[in-house]
């Protein structure tokens, strides 16, 4: 089911949570609503679900206006941040709930419900837990049960609020992969909310970046990473070095290969992997000094200090593959030259 939001606004008292949100999500996408906390992403998700009413604007699902329709009639599946499993029901009954509350003429017979619930539990690989209670499950298991419960009613849209937020890192990694695969399998239009840009980039086919109740950019993960629409998106997605032409030594930047493409461009954002490091001999007049480095697995992150700068100037971060770093055989305090391959310019 496609989703269309037009002109959605929402106020909480004097605080404007969302202002004039226009968003179109084609059928079958797996979309991430990404933004810092308090940016309105959860509110937007709840408005799509019907758990919250927008002050202005309309919500269309498959072209049908559902703005005022009650959440129970919208045919959406919602997975809550803290799962919201029914504590007094077994895992089986939790998943069966949506099937049991259907009006009598639509309700499946008991045998079919049983079969379907077991099939769903197998889909989330937790059928062996069917007679447990939610309190007896781990966080990752609860999350998957919550998903199975939402899927039981065959929703046309699946909405997930910070689905991995409360899980530890390794479980989160597994579940991300698993959610992607599940989406491939079911192909139901899904939206999930996250504040973790890595998670959004890894899982989603489309990313919507929100800030202060507005959409900053919408696009595929590579779009957003390679062509950030503005300074906020560039800063929020991935690591970025920020060079302000007004504050920093323009000559120094020119030596590093950074030239403004347009006159009004004043601030350059440079990804760490777009900085190439070369070792220079000690007596040479080098632009930077290696202060420290961190091991990130396949990559090494180098922290560089501009020579001749005072202590307040922010360090420059560069990244290079492990192998390359070994070949350079750098040690702390070595002078280096740096070459900036490309930058994003903002005003």
């Amino acid at each position: 089911m496609s989703i269309l939001l037009s002109n959605i606004s929402k106020q909480f008292g004097a605080f404007s949570a969302l202002s004039n949100i226009n968003l179109e999500i084609p059928e079958g996408e797996l979309v991430a609503l990404l933004g810092p906390s308090g940016c309105g992403k959860t509110t937007l998700l709840r408005i799509i679900a019907g758990l919250e009413q927008a002050d202005k604007g309309r919500v269309l699902l498959s072209g049908v206006d559902k703005t005022t329709q009650n959440v129970s009639k919208r045919g959406i599946g919602f997975v809550f941040q803290h799962y919201a499993l029914f504590r007094h029901m077994t895992v089986f009954e939790n998943v069966a709930f949506g099937l049991r509350v259907k009006p009598r003429r639509e309700r499946l017979d008991n045998e079919t419900i049983t079969k379907k619930v077991h099939a769903l539990l197998e889909l989330v690989q937790l059928d062996w837990l069917h007679d447990r209670y939610p309190d007896q499950l781990s966080g990752g298991q609860r999350q998957r049960i919550a998903l199975a419960r939402a899927l039981a009613v065959e929703p046309s849209v699946l909405l997930l609020d910070e689905p991995f937020g409360a899980l530890d890192a390794s479980v989160r990694k597994d579940l991300r992969q698993w959610l992607r695969n599940l989406h491939h399998e079911l192909n139901v239009t899904s939206i999930f909310v996250t504040h973790d840009q890595e998670e959004a980039m890894e899982v989603a086919s489309q990313v919507v970046v929100l800030n202060h109740g507005r959409i900053e950019q919408q696009g595929t993960p590579s779009d957003i990473y390679d062509h950030p629409a503005n300074a906020f998106v560039s800063r929020f997605i991935g690591q970025t070095n920020i060079f302000d032409m007004a504050e920093q030594d323009a000559d120094w930047l020119q030596i590093a290969g950074l030239l403004p493409t347009q006159k009004e461009s004043k601030i350059a954002h440079v990804r760490p992997h777009d900085i190439i490091i070369e070792k220079t001999s000690a007596n040479q007049d080098a632009p930077a000094t290696l202060k420290d480095w961190q091991h990130l697995g396949a990559l090494i992150r180098l922290e560089l200090v501009k020579n001749g700068s005072n202590a307040n100037t922010p360090s420059v971060f560069a990244e290079m593959p492990n192998e390359q770093f070994k070949q350079l055989a750098l040690s702390r305090g070595d002078k280096v030259a740096l070459q900036i391959r490309q930058a994003h310019w903002f005003q």
Binding site: A49, L51, N70, V71, S72, K73, I76, G77, F78, F80, H82, A84, L85, F86, R87, H88, F97, G98, V101, K102, A146, R149, A150, A152, V153
Partner: peptide
């Protein structure tokens, strides 16, 4: 959120009360 979960699964208000709130 348990109530909201119930409603999102299609339960009526009465069902949410009878099956979720009251048993708890």
């Amino acid at each position: 959120s348990m109530e909201e979960a119930g409603a999102s699964l299609g339960a009526t208000r009465l069902q949410v009360f009878n099956r979720i709130i009251f048993p708890n």
